[in-house]
């Protein structure tokens, strides 16, 4: 654990497992990330399974009558949230590559993802 001016920083990992619009989990997870950014903790995001769809470019939600919240991922950098990990097999299984995503990410294999999870203090899974 590292020290910050605000006190002891913990390592928070937000695990995103769900597609963006079928349920509210993805949107409300992002709301936690944005609020949590004010707390000066060491934040990472992981995208597994259908969660990788949250980051796909060119989302058009007009027909769904829901708000397209994918642009908010591009704002994360302004909140110093820059560690985004995407599981390699989840991307490949859906015919996606890093070039299809709205933000720069680190594509990692399942073993590396397990290590990332192992190193956290708090894991919030949505």
């Amino acid at each position: 654990m590292s020290q910050t001016e605000a006190g002891v920083a913990k390592k928070f990992l937000y695990v995103n497992r769900k597609a963006p619009y079928g349920t509210i989990y993805a949107l409300e997870s992002l709301e936690v990330v944005l609020i949590g950014a004010a707390f000066d903790q060491d934040v990472s995001l992981a995208f597994l399974g259908d969660g990788v769809y949250q980051l796909v470019k060119g989302q058009d939600t007009k027909g769904l009558e829901m708000k397209n919240f994918s642009p908010a991922f591009r704002a994360l950098e302004d909140y110093d949230v820059t560690k985004l990990y995407v599981e390699q097999d989840a991307l490949a299984a859906r015919g996606l590559t890093e070039a299809d995503l709205v933000v720069p990410v680190e594509v990692v294999g399942a073993e590396r993802m397990a290590e990332i999870m192992e190193s956290q203090d708090v894991i919030l899974s949505f």
């Binding site: 913990k10 928070f12 709301e31 936690v32 609020i35 004010a38 707390f39 903790q41 708090v122």
Partner: peptide, 10 residues
Amino acid sequence: GLGQLIEAGI
């Protein structure tokens, strides 16, 4: 607010 969740994590 959601800050209460983050605080609980901390």
